[in-house]
Design a protein around this nucleic acid. Structure first.
Lengths: 137, 137
DNA sequence: AGAAGTCTCTTCGTTGAGGAAGAGATTACG
DNA sequence: CGTAATCTCTTCCTCAACGAAGAGACTTCT
């Protein structure tokens, strides 16, 4: 990875993060809320305890974090079938306000993808899958 | 962009955002600080007024935001040569704590890039550059 | 030159997110 | 069985970040 490529990549990652934060704000979400949503998206449903371990929050703030996300329609709480003390926090289908906030960017990116050959697109998506796995927390 | 590809991509973006937020936290940065740093990285040096317009903050919090970033060694304030009321906020070289936080991920991604052919890497970096431009706020 | 406008910074009050401690319910262990 | 451990949630407190309003320095316009 040359210095030049590294520069391109750094700016790219910055743009992605900025994009995510911007979309989150427009839905009234804070940084931690976005963090939790991405955790749930990448790692699947989990209990408040697991979420609290992965976010680094103590249990009190975690409860209120889940409250916020539930009220906003992002997640759902379900009682755990095995252990009646536990709760399972599950990500719901993408809520309308978020989809709306992301739509313009998605369209632009769709146009970019359309400009590549089938083989190039395969390369890109292969990379996306690998990078996602590599960055899994 | 098929539904499947869209899913891959959504998770990828989530992983990138999570990665950025995680690195920021480990340096004691909040969401807004990260947002501002990325703005400065993508759009170059700017005045506090411009930064306040782009972050959506009023001028008071913007001043303190810059104070925080300056104390942490991320940015530098320089008096504007044309207008002595103005200040130019400039991003410095990446501070050590941030580079340290990002190092493991960079290494992993470097390994991934190393597995592609020269041509595939060109495709990837071409995409990165285009996507960065498309997402510019 | 003087008035009006612009830019940054300061001060003050408010708000919201987070930590600490403990309650209540359930499960596991002796 | 009964005691200890676990899990979520509640309550109270603290603190950091934000907005509003205005001060001070400088520029622009008449």
């Amino acid at each position: 990875m040359s210095t030049d490529a590294s520069e391109v990549y750094r700016r790219y990652v910055g743009a992605m993060v900025l994009h995510g934060l911007h979309a989150a704000r427009s839905c009234g979400l804070g940084g931690t809320d976005l963090y939790a949503l991405n955790l749930l998206d990448l790692n699947g449903p989990m209990t408040p305890g697991e979420l609290s371990a992965q976010t680094g929050l103590t249990t009190g703030p975690t409860t209120r974090l889940i409250d916020r996300l539930e009220e906003a329609g992002f997640v759902r709480r379900t009682p755990s079938p095995d252990d009646r003390r536990k709760v399972i926090v599950e990500l719901l289908a993408e809520p309308a306000p978020l989809a709306e906030a992301l739509a313009p960017a998605r369209e632009k990116l769709g146009d970019i993808f359309a400009g590549y050959s089938e083989e190039e697109r395969r390369t890109l998506f292969d990379y996306f899958a690998r990078a996602t796995e590599a960055l899994r927390p």
